[in-house]
Design a protein around this nucleic acid. Structure first.
Length: 273
DNA sequence: AGGACGCCCTGTTCGC
DNA sequence: TGCGAACAGGGCGTCC
């Protein structure tokens, strides 16, 4: 499930493998993955040119094309990148070399024979071409990136919200990049119940939400989103049915909140008004 | 208008 | 044993 740390890892991967080498050919293996873009348009915009820069806001990755425009990538819940050179040296993103070499939807072949692949099993992801980065982010109604936003504006935005805490944090227009898994993680680290109403939350608690959001996302980016390398007190290690709280061994509770499966510790995250 | 909810999609897991 | 139902979930459309 690519959230901010995974997509940041993809961005770094793209920086390493996809920039500054002329594209010989674009292969669209599954045209349905394209958004607001035809195959012919994509080829016309990318072939013979180099990719020059990357940008990321939340879960959206943009790669600038020499001479104008951007390639945009969204990874849905099963998307990832890979790179292959020759018949050996297959490299996968986010610290997971075991990802299958399957479900390639779009492939860039460089002049030097390198292959840069966009994989997406479940087809929730999208790829396409857009002329302007900022217009793209605006059209997607993205709020500030969760690792760029500062504390005061984050708290101010949260204070305007009603409803439950977890769905608010997952709203990409409030803050971009937090998905289901890291929303559960940061609330666990805060000791806050995911159904807690935002309206009843003191500003100090919102400050703690901010602090843990940034800490969890930074920690995860620092290990290239390889979750096995995260500290043992992280919930995501046991975030599964019959899993137990890493800090107290309590049986985790699981329920659907805002339409998403939510894991939390009923002891460490008690429900308060 | 903001919040709640159903749906898209496909591979895997579960239950009868 | 085998097959169909349930499930996972980011984002968008729809409804109130």
């Amino acid at each position: 499930m690519p959230e901010l740390p995974e997509v940041e890892t993809f961005r770094q991967f793209a920086e390493q493998y996809a920039l500054n080498r002329p594209v010989r050919q674009v292969r669209v293996l599954t045209p349905k993955i394209l958004e607001n873009t035809t195959e012919a348009q994509l080829r016309q915009q990318v072939e013979t040119r180099c990719l020059t820069h990357t940008r990321r806001v939340g879960k959206h990755l943009l790669i600038q094309i020499e001479g104008g425009g951007w390639l945009f990538l969204h990874f849905g819940m099963t998307g990832y990148l890979s790179y292959a050179q020759g018949s050996q040296r297959i490299v996968n993103a986010y610290g997971n070399p075991a990802l299958p070499e399957k479900h390639i939807r779009v492939q860039l072949e460089f002049e030097d024979g390198g292959l840069f692949n966009f994989h997406e099993q479940r087809m929730f992801g999208k790829l396409g071409w857009t002329p302007q980065a900022d217009a793209y982010f605006k059209a997607k109604k993205l709020g500030p990136d969760a690792l760029e936003v500062e504390k005061a504006p984050f708290i101010a935005a949260l204070q305007k919200r009603k409803g439950q805490l977890k769905p608010a944090l997952m709203d990409q227009s409030l803050v971009a990049g937090v998905g289901n898994v890291y929303a559960d993680e940061l609330l666990y680290q805060c000791g806050l119940h995911p159904e807690r109403l935002v309206s009843g939350l003191p500003a100090a608690a919102m400050g703690e939400v901010y602090t843990q959001m940034v800490a969890v996302l930074r920690d995860t980016v620092a290990v290239q989103a390889d979750r096995d390398q995260l500290p043992p007190h992280y919930l995501l290690h046991t975030r599964k049915p019959k899993g137990r709280c890493p800090q107290g061994n309590h049986l985790l509770d699981v329920k659907s909140i805002g339409g998403r499966t939510t894991y939390f510790c009923p002891i460490c995250q008690p429900f308060l008004g």
